[in-house]
Simulated scan of single mutants.
Amino acid sequence: MNATAIVGVLTAIIAASVALIGYVINQMTARRERRAKAYAEALRTIRQYQEIPYRVVRRLDSSAETRTRLDDQHGEIMSSIGFHLGWLRLESPDTAAAYEALWERCRTFGGVYRKWAWRQPLVSTDAQMAVTLPFQFDIKPELDICVQAMRADTHFFGWRARRAVRQRATALAERRAAEPPPDFTTLETWSLPT
Rank of each mutant, 00 (worst) to 15 (best):
V18A: 09
A171I: 14
R105Q: 11
R162H: 15
W103C: 10
D72H: 08
A12S: 02
T186F: 14
T66M: 08
V165K: 05
R163A: 11
Q167R: 05
R166I: 09
E174M: 14
I25D: 09
Y39A: 01
V24A: 03
N2R: 07
T132N: 12
V57M: 11
I13M: 11
L187F: 01
T186C: 13
I139T: 04
W118F: 08
A15I: 01
R107V: 15
A97S: 09
D153M: 06
Y23L: 15
Y23P: 13
P182G: 12
A42H: 00
P134K: 01
N26W: 11
H155W: 07
R44K: 14
R162K: 15
D61T: 00
E100Q: 12
V7M: 02
T29D: 15
I25P: 05
Q73V: 07
V56S: 13
A178C: 06
E91C: 10
F157Y: 04
W190K: 03
W87R: 04
R160L: 13
R69K: 13
W118P: 03
T186I: 12
R67K: 14
G110V: 08
R168I: 04
P180F: 00
S92E: 06
S191T: 11
A5F: 05
Y99K: 00
G110R: 09
A5P: 02
M150D: 00
A98L: 07
R34M: 08
R67S: 13
Q120W: 10
F109M: 08
Y49E: 02
A127S: 09
S17K: 15
V165D: 05
T4R: 12
I77D: 00
